[in-house]
Design a protein around this nucleic acid. Structure first.
Length: 254
DNA sequence: GCCCTTGTTACGCC
DNA sequence: AGGCGTAACAAGGG
């Protein structure tokens, strides 16, 4: 599913639309504001940025916001940013195109989303989002955890706290930093915050290089088949924490 | 054919 | 008041 890493790959694909003009917009009206198509038509793309899971396409007019939900894929000129998306559809079926931005040079920028959880916006408000997963400082991470009395898992999934982490990335980072997802956030020690921040700095870029949030130790097949913990051979636990299925090792994550 | 999956929001509770 | 937990949502796939 598109977490911050996948959306960063989408952003890199979207860079290919910079300098190109929009001829026509076809959009699923239930996923965008009423003025969306008019606001984008005849604009020229000027930039491709990202905050958390939100892709921001600058134009010579407004900024276009694309959010991909759980199964949204970005396709530019027939080339998908990610071919095989975890939990995404098996095919790139035309019926699942929720947004088609046809360019004057014959190219097309599409969002293909089987489950219709993508959302499209004009000049989206990024203020409520926390610091981006790649930019968050150790001090920011510490401050965010300090002021919350809910589970570590819930805080890290909260886009207002840190923008861009999803279920799989959070489990992966907690596994690397030896922290139990059920820990109450404001009981995490400074030393543990340092470990968590170091895990983000090391593993987020590494997973991005490998192709996304499914390339970690707790990969989707590990999550389903549940072998012993690759670190210490103890059984992995599975339970709902922070409202999401969580996988962790009760031996080395405390 | 039931049930799992996810990100976000709405809502009720304490 | 406001933080927290949970249900609901869509729909393909196992």
């Amino acid at each position: 599913m598109p977490e911050g890493l996948e959306v960063e790959l989408y952003r890199r694909t979207a860079v290919g639309a910079i300098g190109r003009a929009v001829a026509r917009v076809v959009v699923d009206g239930s996923l965008a504001p009423p003025d969306f198509a008019d606001a984008v038509t005849a604009r020229v793309f000027t930039s491709a940025d990202r905050v958390g899971k939100l892709l921001l396409l600058g134009t010579d007019g407004p900024t276009v916001g694309l959010h991909f939900g759980m199964t949204g894929r970005l396709v530019l000129d027939g080339t998908a940013a990610i071919e095989r998306l975890e939990y995404g559809g098996r095919r790139d079926d035309e019926r699942w195109d929720r947004l088609r931005i046809e360019l004057t040079d014959g190219g097309v920028l599409r969002v293909n989303d089987p489950r219709r959880w993508a959302r499209f916006s004009i000049d989206p408000d990024v203020v409520p989002l926390g610091p981006d997963l790649f930019d968050v400082t150790r001090a920011q991470l510490r401050a965010v955890l300090r002021r919350r009395r809910t589970t570590l898992k819930a805080v890290l999934l909260d886009q207002h706290a840190i923008a861009g982490l999803g279920n799989m990335l959070v489990d992966e980072l907690l596994w690397h930093s030896g922290l139990d997802p059920r820990r109450i956030a404001n009981t995490v020690t400074t030393r543990q915050v340092v470990r968590l921040h170091a895990a983000m700095a090391e593993h987020l870029p590494a997973m991005l290089e490998r192709g996304g949030s499914h390339t970690g130790v707790l990969s989707p097949d590990v999550r389903s088949s549940r072998p012993p913990c690759p670190r210490d051979g103890r059984p992995l636990q599975v339970a709902t924490v922070g409202g999401r299925t969580s996988v962790w090792c009760a031996y080395h994550q405390r």
